[in-house]
């Protein structure tokens, strides 16, 4: 099987997967029709990308993506492998750190907030998820940590590769993309310790785990968009590197990772709607702790944030990439 047919297969596989979830949502709750209709509209757009109906130069958008991927797949593979290999190259435990790191982080925070400060009773609401606080905390740490890691890597991808960009022609978009991929592998790996902790807490996964890849896909797409946006803007304003450090810390505390949303005043609870990471973390918690498929509405909100961020990031990147070379 050649490379482009693999991509085609993966593409239609994703569409089939999304369709399956849509059908499930309708069967479960016929009241969610309006949302599901919207979802179907998104799917049709997706399908159009691969069809010949909207195409430039007798090529579908999918086949153009294929051509680029085909030409640079070896480079992408090499860059991702490099990041992954060098990250743990000189440590004793190596790749095991991908599992260990989130667990240790969770242990520290659990100890500080529950044992030391005894926040268990004041931390939240009636939310049944809080009965499994360790798992609750771990999901938040893994998702936000993964997101933050990806963004930090992508942020520097253009500026730190300046010597390459000024000497060799490679589509610049490859740099932030591979950084997000290689940091994303770590995020995916840390799902394993998450499920170990969940099992210890008696949360045996059921069929709802099938929707977990969808949640991770949403997060990946959102993060790639964010990575494009950050890596492009930081070329023109280096201050963003420092601002982002402050901003991401603010974002972390503004996201219900340690506490529950019920802990907040009503007005701020409403504002939380605009925090994409709240939706993503909640999406995954729903699957892992409540072991249910998130509602159609919640799924669609996540999808909208992902698509929106991706389009914004890609637009900013594509509009500015020709000017990078004068600023790096």
């Amino acid at each position: 099987m050649n490379f482009s047919s693999k991509i085609t297969l993966a593409f239609y596989g994703i569409i089939a997967y999304l369709l399956g979830i849509t059908v499930y949502q309708v069967l479960r709750d016929p009241g969610a029709w309006s949302f599901v209709l919207l979802g179907v509209a998104v799917l049709i757009c997706f399908w159009l990308v691969g069809s010949k109906l909207i195409s430039k130069k007798k090529q579908t958008i999918l086949s153009r993506i294929q051509a680029t991927f085909h030409r640079f797949s070896f480079l992408i593979e090499q860059l991702v492998a490099r990041d992954f290999k060098t990250k743990y190259k000189r440590s004793v435990l190596g790749v095991f750190w991908s599992f260990l790191n989130p667990l240790l982080m969770m242990a520290v925070q659990y100890f500080v907030f529950i044992r030391l400060m005894n926040l268990r009773n004041s931390i939240g609401s009636e939310n049944p998820m809080l009965n499994y606080y360790a798992v609750y905390l771990l999901v938040g740490i893994i998702i936000f940590g993964g997101f933050n890691d990806c963004c930090n890597q992508a942020l520097r991808s253009i500026v730190y590769n300046a010597s390459l960009i000024t000497k060799v022609y490679v589509p610049k978009i490859i740099y932030p993309t591979t950084k997000v991929f290689s940091a994303g592998i770590n995020l995916a790996l840390s799902i394993l310790p998450l499920y170990i902790i969940a099992l210890i807490n008696g949360l045996v996964p059921n069929f709802s785990i099938l929707v977990l890849p969808l949640g991770l896909l949403f997060i990946l797409v959102f993060t790639i968009g964010m990575g494009y946006f950050l890596s492009a803007t930081v070329v023109f304003f280096r201050d963003i590197e420092f601002l982002w450090g402050v901003f991401s810390t603010m974002w972390m505390y503004a996201t219900p990772i340690i506490y529950d949303i019920g802990f907040l005043p009503n007005t701020i609870q409403k504002l939380m709607f605009f925090n994409p990471l709240y939706h993503y973390i909640d999406f995954v918690r729903y699957i892992v702790i409540l072991r249910q498929v998130p509602t159609a509405e919640e799924t669609l909100i996540c999808a909208a944030f992902s698509l929106g961020m991706f389009v914004l990031g890609l637009t900013v990147f594509k509009k500015t990439e020709d000017k990078f070379i004068f600023y790096i």
Partner: peptide, 11 residues
């Protein structure tokens, strides 16, 4: 392999 990929060689 890394440098070769950057220079645009195939696997």
């Amino acid at each position: 392999y890394l440098n070769g990929a950057i220079l645009g060689y195939s696997k």
